[in-house]
Amino acid sequence: MKILVAISKTPETTAKISFTPDNKAFNTDGVQYIMNPYDEWYALVRGLELKEANGGSVTVINVGPPANDVIIRKALAIGADDAVRVNAEPLSARFVAEQIANHAKEAGYDLIIFGKETIDYSGALVPGMVAELLDLPFFSFAHYLEVDGKTATVTRDIEGGEEIAEAELPIVVSAIKGMAEQRIPNMRGIMMAKRKPLNVTEPVGTQGDVEIVAYTLPPEKSAVKLVEPENMDELVSLLHEEAKVI
């Protein structure tokens, strides 16, 4: 089974968020980056488990600048066989999706696994876009994925519940918590990762269908209003009369 896992990079979750003085770009000074947790913990690990059970290979793909090689090497250390980096700043979901679809079309995969969203911009767009570009079935927000021969069974979140469904490979899946357990790379994995192939390719198409033109910080919260623990009647009336939520 040939598996492709799309991995992205995101600021580490406690990173300080600030912008350039013109408020047009994210200020990257001193920001530490990590592999997007959904990609690392769930999409990648489930890909590896399926390869271990069924044979085949796991390729990881990232659309990003050379600095992303650190994150790609981590994915190789966790166990991916090889990697592709499309050498471009990923400025819009569509552009990223076009790069991934372009690679997948050539290489031909049975299974393409994504994280449900990146935790910085939370677009949740790239997986569905790739599915449409490749005209494949798409299972969003899956927390279970099993493959038996050519048939995949998926459990995915739907409004107010979950759905168990199946389809013939190839398919596109986006992964949420529950699909797998995080794996920590070991020393041997880290050593082996250095020798695994990381192929850099140039992008196709152009960016610009969507662009961020400004950033702002959310309005400051006014200070918390404290209510004495003995005085819950007061809290109730504040919620009713002042906040008007009950």
Partner: peptide
Amino acid sequence: HSTTGKALAGRVGIAIDGSVVTA
């Protein structure tokens, strides 16, 4: 921006050649 809308947004964006913004 429900699980249904999120599952569809990217796909529909490509199909109708539209610019997509979620949430």
